[in-house]
Design a protein around this nucleic acid. Structure first.
Length: 570
RNA sequence: UGGGAUGUAGUGUAACGGUAACACUGCAGAUUCUGGUUCUGCCUUUGGGGGUUCGAGCCCCUCCAUCCCAGCCA
């Protein structure tokens, strides 16, 4: 009991975001039916979910979880021309990957087509809706502008009987698309354009994923969404800022006679991240134009993209948590997201030695055919980490950048006469180099100190550099795909107006023949790996059917040496 | 020039009338068998102007700036 009180006191100290405050206030004042918070995540299945959606998902599922309520998944499928089953499948898979469970509460706006239709008929009967026969262009003229009120449609005063007959004919498919439309009678002079007799139903002779050809009239968002919320018993309908203007329409619809549940709409600022584009329309363009290989290309900010890239769901949820929830339009630094990914992966990734850009070193005083094994910890961040064996031999690969004939200041790695440690193995000193006809270094000859076995020496002498390495004879070849940002600028397209102008030509660099320690053959899809000093990687989840393994770089390690080089002008 | 919103370090978010803070970024240093990690320190903040109050980031007035809205999209 005491413990529980302490806990509550503690929780009170944690500041609430504005949505939590609203909910706690509603709960405290008995405004929530059954004291059960019901939220919903309502994606339209017209594209893949992206990082921006994660925020909405975390808010809706998170709030339901925190206050012991539930969150519905509702696919908002009211526009059959844009929606596809592939997207529905992807949305559900992405949600599961993030670890959210909607239980049996999987709904579709199309589940309510019959209800919606009946409500529309009732509105007509009550004189609150009418069939308009203005063309789209005429309707636009009648709508007025932002600063001028609109005018009533000449069809606004049609008789109830005529409206009923026309709407029924629309439903029966007797009228062509665009010839008639059902509109609410609200107020053409409203300063809020959404209240100027909004469209309720339009004619569309389109095959619907779920209702097939049953309907040729489809309800509009402003009509469908609030009523769907009401029918499902949603208490808090949380959406993004651009729907603020629609709240009066939302309240209008949920106040229609016969609707006995009143959800409330609240708006928060959508997530923007520098260097990323977060618009389904533009992401679709990238796919269609072939700029990326698909919605799940590891460079895409889609959930399936970042999953394939190797981001963990935990790191993304942590990121969303750190970003917070507010009503201010903002752009979060890309670096915060990378920080969250690295922080999580640092704790969980198995370390492996992989050489991306190999240069061969030969240890002249090491026996020719000898192979010995060294023990490596899988993850030094984990005190209980398992270990694995790494084969060592006379000929090894190290990174090309780990050897320099003429080193700059503060360079701590291999150069003639300098001693470094080969991680877990021996100290070596570079003696000489062999070059090809063009002057490229093909071999570095070294000497090792047998007393340094295991990486330390009896005399405790220090070396400033430690390099990772792979046996030239025992190592295996893999393909590494080095991904970087898709765009070069923080706000793609800001300078020229066309985001495609800011594409990063080096967003993917393929290393077809990287050298890896044999342990890598145990890697499975979904494993988080760190290639020591090269970054976090994961096995590609798509193109690994046979042959050479393909690894995607999730994110690089922080690189203070690169910063220093830049500063020194190297 | 209609309506709706929003302004706190470079970026995000707290502070709920009582000493403006946390994280990321950046910078400097220490530690390290990853130039990673970890640790330490530093930098910079209430859009402007009035008012109320003993006291204002918070309340009031005013100005300014930014974002959203004129789909038979959501």
């Amino acid at each position: 009991m005491q413990e529980k009180e302490d806990l509550e006191v503690k929780e009170e100290k944690i500041s609430l975001n504005f949505l939590e405050r609203i909910i706690e206030d509603d709960l405290a004042n008995g405004r929530v039916p059954d004291n059960t918070i019901v939220t919903r995540f309502p994606p339209e299945p017209n594209g893949y979910l992206h990082i921006g959606h994660i925020k909405s998902i975390c808010i809706n599922f998170g709030l339901a979880d925190k206050y012991g309520g539930r969150c519905h998944l509702r696919l908002d499928d009211t526009n059959p021309e844009k929606e596809e089953q592939e997207y529905i499948n992807a949305i559900k898979e992405d949600l599961k990957w993030l670890g959210f469970d909607w239980g049996t509460h999987e709904y579709y706006a199309s589940d309510y087509y019959q209800n919606l239709y009946e409500i529309a008929v009732r509105l007509i009967e009550e004189g609150k809706a009418f069939v308009d026969s203005l063309s789209a262009e005429e309707m636009k003229e009648y709508r007025g502008t932002l600063t001028e009120p609109g005018k009533n449609s000449p069809y606004r005063e049609r008789s109830i009987e005529e409206n009923l007959r026309l709407f029924e004919e629309m439903r029966q498919g007797k009228h062509a698309e665009g010839t008639h439309i059902l509109r609410a009678k609200i107020d053409m002079s409203s300063p809020n354009i959404n209240m100027r007799d909004p469209a309720l139903y339009r004619i569309k002779f389109a095959h619907h994923l779920r209702t097939g050809d049953k309907w040729c009239i489809y309800p509009m968002y402003d009509f469908t969404h609030p009523i769907s919320d009401a029918l499902e018993g949603i208490t808090h309908s949380i959406c993004t800022l651009e729907f603020e203007d629609h709240r009066p329409a939302y309240d209008w619809a949920t106040s229609i006679d016969g609707i006995d549940h009143t959800p409330r709409q609240y708006e928060f600022a959508r997530l923007n991240i520098s260097y990323l584009i977060m618009s389904k329309r533009r992401l679709l363009q990238l796919v269609q134009m072939g700029i990326v290989t698909g919605w799940d290309d590891p460079r895409m900010p889609t959930i399936s993209g970042i999953r394939r890239r190797g981001y963990s769901p935990e790191s993304m949820k942590d990121f969303i948590n750190r970003v917070g929830v507010a009503k201010v339009e903002s752009v979060v630094d890309y670096s915060l997201m990378e920080f969250c990914v690295r922080e999580d992966l640092n704790k969980r990734a198995e370390r492996l030695m992989v050489i991306l850009d190999p240069i061969k070193i030969i240890i002249d005083n090491y026996p020719e055919d000898k192979v010995e094994y060294f023990e490596a910890v899988d993850n030094p961040e984990d005190p209980n980490s398992a270990t694995h064996q790494i084969p060592f031999g006379r000929e090894l690969y190290i990174e090309r950048e780990d050897f320099m004939e003429v080193p700059p200041k503060k360079y701590h790695r291999l150069y003639p006469g300098n001693e470094i440690r080969l991680k877990y193995a021996y100290y070596i000193t570079a003696d000489s180099v062999v070059k090809d006809d063009e002057g490229n270094i093909t071999e570095v000859h070294c000497t090792y100190d047998p007393l340094s076995r295991g990486g330390t020496t009896p005399d405790k002498r220090k070396v400033k550099g430690t390099s990772h390495w792979v046996s030239a004879t025992e190592g295996v070849s893999i393909e590494a795909r080095l991904y970087d940002k898709l765009f070069l600028t923080e706000n793609p397209g800001k300078a020229t107006g066309n985001y495609l102008d800011d594409l990063n030509p080096d967003s993917l660099v393929v290393v077809p023949d990287a050298k890896a320690e044999p342990e890598i053959l145990n890697a499975k899809v979904g494993d988080y790996l760190q290639f020591i000093r090269n970054g976090y990687f994961c096995l590609d989840n798509k193109e690994n059917q046979d042959g050479k393994l393909i690894f995607n770089r999730t994110v690089t390690l922080r690189d203070s040496w690169a910063k220093m080089k830049k500063k020194m002008g190297i």
